[in-house]
């Protein structure tokens, strides 16, 4: 399953501080959308509003609408817990559960949603998720070992396996390669290109080559100055953002003249 995200005039706050102002964006299903921009421009903050992770920080709130195939995630009576099982998230640093084995890590989220799972069904889910994350061949002989014993890149792919085991509609990635070496980054980027066949993928990245390599559409966020809210400056097909941007700030940023 893969769903379209439609954001309408979203304002994001930390307490009284307006962090991101008036974002309107349509994110396509079965595609990779990249958010780029300088540090502090609110792209990660905005990403976290797409699965209601933003509000786990005390005092954080949003105004506006985030529609997932027409259903408002911030509508009355919508349970943030259910939202997060529909919209999965991969974090900046690999964070497998250290007390769980590789197998249990993959099953962690899936077990929350379906109370009872037969052993064979669980085995199947573990294998398909790990295969989906290009990790199966590397770990199939040590599924009982702790996930924290893997390399950084393997851990990050384990986190992706854990996320797709929940069968979400959307996968959000918050700088998933920033803690990885180039080889592991390549493995994760390959995986991202495969994931878009089934999921809506949104990735925040500081690495513009990465955005150019993996994404179809790119959104450029910018900030007018410290203390000012971040804004969505330009949103267009990735080719256009990098080769022929309409906005001067975008051109300065992607050509390296700024930030």
């Amino acid at each position: 399953m893969s769903k379209r995200i439609d954001v309408e005039s979203l304002n994001v706050y930390y307490g009284d501080f307006l962090a991101v102002e008036d974002v309107n964006i349509q994110i396509d299903p079965r595609a990779v959308t990249a958010f780029i921009g300088p540090s502090g421009c609110g792209k990660s903050t905005f990403l976290r509003t797409l699965n209601r992770m933003h509000e786990v920080v005390p005092g954080a709130r949003v105004e506006g609408k985030v529609n997932l195939d027409g259903e408002d995630l911030y509508g009355r009576g919508v349970d943030p817990v259910r939202v997060r099982s529909q919209v999965g998230m991969v974090f900046q640093r690999p964070n497998p559960f250290p007390t769980m084995s590789i197998r249990d890590n993959v099953l962690a989220g899936a077990k929350l949603n379906s109370r009872r799972m037969s052993r064979s069904a669980a085995d199947e889910l573990v294998e398909s998720s790990l295969r989906g994350a290009n990790l199966w061949e590397e770990v199939k002989d040590r599924l009982g070992k702790p996930g924290s014993g893997l390399s950084g890149g393997q851990q990050q792919r384990l986190c992706i396996a854990r996320t797709i085991a929940v069968k979400p509609d959307v996968i959000l990635m918050d700088e998933p390669c920033s803690a990885l070496d180039p080889i592991s980054t390549l493995a994760v980027e390959d995986l991202i290109s495969e994931l878009q066949e089934e999921y809506t993928v949104v990735i925040v990245t500081h690495n513009m080559q990465q955005a150019a390599r993996v994404s179809h559409k790119t959104a450029f966020f910018n900030i007018a100055g410290t203390g000012k809210p971040g804004r969505l400056i330009e949103y267009a097909p990735t080719q256009e953002i990098f080769n022929n941007p309409k906005n001067q700030a975008t051109e300065d940023y992607v050509s390296g003249r700024f930030g």
């Binding site: 992770m53 817990v81 099982s85 998230m89 640093r93 964070n95 250290p98 962690a108 996320t163």
Partner: peptide
């Protein structure tokens, strides 16, 4: 308990109590 672990649990669709059981208790055992 590392925030990253707690967010990992919440991000998978855990309720607060499930998050506590998955991350806080094992970390603090």
């Amino acid at each position: 308990t590392p925030v990253l672990q707690q967010e990992a649990a919440l991000g998978l669709g855990a309720t607060r109590w499930e998050m506590v059981r998955m991350t806080v208790f094992p970390f603090a055992r």
